[in-house]
Design a protein around this nucleic acid. Structure first.
Lengths: 248, 248
DNA sequence: TTTTGACTAATTTAGTTTAATTGGTCAACC
DNA sequence: GGTTGACCAATTAAACTAAATTAGTCAAAA
């Protein structure tokens, strides 16, 4: 039906949409870069438009307000983070464990200046506006997901169940937050590379949270499957949210 | 020689000195209270004088500048903290261990708003001036003392020696800093009381840093003695510094 | 239809003047 | 002697204005 010479409306519409989506990504790229360099407050729509090579009005064809643009950027970053974490876990034989997840999630966060700033509520980078709303939300969502996974792992004897979940969540939060933001406090001769830091954290979690004797091979296999399914679902849900926001 | 009716010069001089020292303490009390309430920047010498019930000039009989007063206050707080920690360790059967020390030191810090603010570099409470100088110094001194103790405990097999000291110091720092400042991040239903938080931290340290099998009773006794001597020496050194600063 | 950029109303920033406060001193007082 | 609080120079805060910047709009161009 459709060929190179005479294309039907559907084709053209789709082509245009993908072109527009590509442009949306370019705009978000520009925003991400500028925010990382100048911080949220000092990054203007004009800057972003100039860097993305579009007119200012075009940006408002995609998002109604400046905050909407930022929201979309953060959602995209969330997705990138989730995919990064999934990738790291997939290539790590010990990925599908509590210490594995925490290790990869923390390292991924460290490597994403935007997410790190949001999680740590770095007011210098992220503006005051976001501070209260988005940051708290992001952190609580994170904890919520850990809670779900923790319950699952406890039920399968892969995590201690002799202390409360609240206490475990507290410890995991304190430890990972400590690792995320300790750096500027440390004297130079004690600093360690990110990769070493999360490795140390992982070992701590393993020793503190996971039982002495390893699980049976078959049970481990089963848990790993569900674990990975869970991660995949989180990625999928995030992806859907992002798609919704990119399609105008 | 000297009795109640006719005192010699020495007596009088000493009496006056103690009276002045008492006054110095009163001034520091006032300063501490006001700084806790209003923060360092908003606490004026006039405020302090009024609250301590002395004239402003009197304060300058004790310290040359506002900063000197603050220094003295922090030294005194350091001493109080060190004594508090020693007391807590003395009454805890497991006090003379790495996890015991960390637990009591962290809890003592939590209970001292002034020290907590300095360690966490809470710019809202502590002024900018102090930020760079005193805060860094205090933190590094802390780490230095832990290093000494860590080496000692490692040599006696009470702490793992299969990872580097640097890595151990990093982990202890990240963990305790995380515990110290995580609170405002947490959703309410995950918060735990300070006492529980440090208990969880202690358990983490025990599991992560200390060997599986307990030491022999006699060796433990020996280590405990040295451990306590070390704590005592830290307290004594701090006390001397404070004395020097209080005596004009 | 889609994209643009000049335009506007509103906010932020920068600069200035004025008023209040503050750290520190010292002559007078105890 | 030791202690005080009025006093001063210097700093900081407040009030105000002018200038610049910014998010968002929309008529015109592509």
């Amino acid at each position: 039906m459709s060929n190179r010479r005479s294309r039907n409306g559907e084709d053209r519409k789709q082509e245009e949409r993908s072109k527009q989506q590509e442009r949306a990504q370019r705009i978000l790229d520009a925003a991400a870069e500028l925010i990382q360099r100048w911080g949220y407050n000092k990054t203007t729509i004009d800057d972003i438009a100039r860097r993305a090579g579009v007119a200012k009005g075009t940006i408002y064809l995609h998002w109604k307000t400046r905050e909407d643009l930022f929201d979309a950027l953060m959602r995209r970053e969330e997705l990138a983070l989730a995919e990064d974490i999934r990738r790291r876990i997939a290539t790590d034989p010990e990925g599908a464990t509590l210490h594995g997840l925490m290790k990869h999630a923390t390292l991924a966060t460290m490597k994403s200046p935007l997410m790190k700033a949001v999680i740590l509520r770095d007011t210098n980078m992220i503006g005051e506006l976001v501070h209260k709303e988005y940051a708290t939300e992001a952190y609580e969502e994170r904890i919520d997901r850990y809670k779900t996974l923790l319950e699952f792992l406890r039920n399968h004897g892969l995590v201690r169940a002799d202390i409360g979940i609240r206490e475990e969540l507290y410890l995991l939060s304190a430890l990972s937050t400590g690792v995320l933001l300790i750096d500027p406090w440390l004297p130079d001769d004690i600093k360690v590379p990110d990769e070493v830091a999360v490795e140390l954290m992982a070992e701590t979690i393993r020793r503190t949270f996971e039982p002495r004797q390893a699980a049976t091979q078959s049970e481990l296999q089963e848990v790993t499957t569900v674990f990975n399914q869970y991660i995949d679902r989180v990625v999928e849900i995030t992806k859907e949210q992002v798609q919704k926001e990119i399609e105008r």
